[in-house]
C-alpha cells in the first residue's frame, strides 16, 4: 500500500526545492468518487493529490498535452505520478524522443495491493448507486455510499487490464512508493485468450467485429485519450492536417485520403486497424481507449492481440526499455517465416 503522506511530502519537497517545475497527479474530481488529472506548481497544492482506485487516467497523456502547449519550454523537469502501466507508457514516449529522460521526474506508485476499478463493472455491481469514494482494502475495494460501505472483492470490480497486469511496479522511476510485488490475478492476455476460445472461426470473429465496428461513431475519443496518438496529423483522418513552413500548396491539395472520416463500416475498420497497427509495439495496455469508448468497443482486444504477437513472435515487450528500437523498426533473423510462400 502507498503511504499517501509520504507521497505528499515528496511532492512538496521537489516543488519547494525547485527540482521540478510542476507535478502531474490526480486530485479529487468535481463529481462523485472519480479522481481527475491535475497539474500543480506550488508546494501548497501537494496535499490535494490523491491515490485511489479511480486513478485510471494515464497521466503521460497530460504530459504529452503539456508538451504540445506553446508555453512548453525545455528546462526543469516536470514530475508525473505514474502507475506501472503509466511508467511503461512514459518509457515508450521516451523511446520515441517525445521526452528526454531528464525532462521527466517519475514519481512511481506501485499497484501492488491495489489496481484501478472498472466503472462499468461497478455500475453493474451497484446498479443505480453512485458511491462517494472508493478505496483499496487488501483483496477488496471499499465503496462508500449513502447507505454505508460496500466491500466488494477486487476481482469483481477491478479493470481487466489490472487483473492481467504485466508489471504493477513502475520500473522507470526517480522515486517509487509501494512494494515491488506482482498484483495480477490472471495471466497476461487472459481476456484475449477467452475471446479467442469463444470466437473460434473466421466467420464468428467477423460476426463479432462487424457488430463492434458498425457501432463506432468515429468520435475519436480513443485517439484523443491515447498518449501514443500524439501525431500532429492522423494519417487516417482526412480532416486534420499538420502544416509547417515547408508544406507546399500541392501537399495541402493532395492530402492522401486513405479512408474517409464518415462512420461507415469499412472506414471504421480501416481506422481501427490502422490504429491497432500503429500501436503495435507501443501500446502498453493502459486500456484508456476502451474505457472512454462511448459505444463500448472492446478496443483492448485489438491492441492486446498485437502486443501478444509482438511478444510471442518477436520477443518484444513494449515499454521495457528506452533504448530499445521500435518493434517495427527492427527485426530478428529468426522472425516467423512460416506464413510466407
Amino acid at each position: 500500500m502507498i503511504d499517501l503522506g509520504a507521497l505528499h511530502t515528496q511532492v512538496r519537497d521537489i516543488l519547494e526545492t525547485g527540482e521540478v517545475r510542476a507535478v502531474v497527479g490526480w486530485r479529487r474530481g468535481s463529481r462523485g468518487m472519480l479522481a481527475e488529472p491535475v497539474t500543480i506548481a506550488t508546494p501548497e497544492e501537494a496535499e490535494t493529490l490523491v491515490w485511489d482506485p479511480t486513478c485510471f487516467h494515464n497521466l503521460s497523456l497530460t504530459l504529452v498535452e503539456e508538451r504540445k502547449k506553446p508555453s512548453w519550454r525545455p528546462g526543469k523537469p516536470i514530475a508525473v505520478v505514474a502507475k506501472g502501466c503509466d511508467a511503461r507508457s512514459l518509457t515508450v514516449l521516451m523511446q520515441e524522443n517525445c521526452f528526454r529522460r531528464d525532462e521527466v521526474y517519475v514519481i512511481g506508485v506501485s499497484c501492488a495491493g491495489s489496481g484501478v476499478l472498472d466503472e462499468r463493472k461497478l455500475a453493474q455491481r451497484l446498479p443505480g448507486v453512485e458511491p462517494d469514494s472508493a478505496a483499496f482494502d487488501g483483496d477488496a475495494f471499499v465503496c462508500a455510499t449513502a447507505g454505508g460501505e460496500d466491500r466488494i472483492p477486487a476481482r469483481e470490480l477491478m479493470a481487466d487490464r489490472c487483473l492481467e497486469c504485466r508489471d504493477a511496479h513502475p520500473k522507470l522511476n526517480n522515486v517509487v512508493f509501494g512494494e515491488a510485488q506482482p498484483r495480477a490475478f490472471d495471466p497476461p492476455f487472459a481476456a484475449l485468450a477467452r475471446f479467442e476460445q469463444e470466437q473460434v472461426g473466421v466467420a464468428e470473429r467477423w460476426q463479432f467485429w462487424q457488430r463492434q465496428f458498425e457501432r463506432c461513431i468515429r468520435c475519436f475519443a480513443c485517439r484523443s485519450v491515447c498518449p501514443m496518438c500524439y501525431c500532429e496529423e492522423c494519417v487516417v483522418d482526412s480532416i486534420n492536417m499538420a502544416v509547417g513552413a515547408d508544406t507546399t500548396a500541392a501537399e495541402k491539395a493532395n492530402r492522401i485520403r486513405w479512408i474517409e472520416r464518415s462512420a461507415s463500416r469499412a472506414d471504421n475498420i480501416g481506422y481501427h486497424m490502422t490504429r491497432a497497427l500503429h500501436l503495435a509495439g507501443r501500446c502498453i495496455d493502459c486500456a484508456e481507449c476502451e474505457r472512454v469508448c462511448p459505444v463500448n468497443i472492446p478496443l483492448r482486444l485489438l491492441n492486446n492481440k498485437l502486443e501478444r504477437e509482438a511478444r510471442v513472435a518477436f520477443g518484444y515487450e513494449p515499454g521495457a526499455s528506452i533504448d530499445l528500437p521500435a518493434l517495427v523498426a527492427s527485426f530478428r533473423d529468426d522472425d516467423p517465416n512460416h506464413f510466407i510462400r
Partner: peptide, 19 residues
Amino acid sequence: FHARRKLYLVKELLEFTGV
C-alpha cells in the same frame, strides 16, 4: 526482414478480425 515483421502483424490482425 522489415517487410516480414510488419506484414506478419497485418496478417495476424486481419485474421483476428475475421478476414
